[in-house]
Amino acid sequence: MRFHPITTAVAAAVLSSSALAQGGVQIGDAPNYTFGEKSFNTQGVKSQADLRGKPVLVDFWGIN
């Protein structure tokens, strides 16, 4: 089944606003992200595109 590009764009916008409303990524979302200069041990990984093909576990932690 093919989706019309406009329908897809509208659906993506709805998904995106829904994700924002709920305050974060949702299951099924594919977030875009990049690593800045201050990131440590990136070994040349600049964005999620460089990690395609392997599972990625993003762990949010705090010092306190």
Binding site: A19, Q22, G23, G24, V25, Q26, P31, Y33, T34, F35, G36, K38, S39, F40, N41, T42, Q43, V45, V58, F60
Partner: peptide
Amino acid sequence: IWTSDYLFSSGG
């Protein structure tokens, strides 16, 4: 990889 950049919100 260690970062303090905002990647996306965990929503948790």
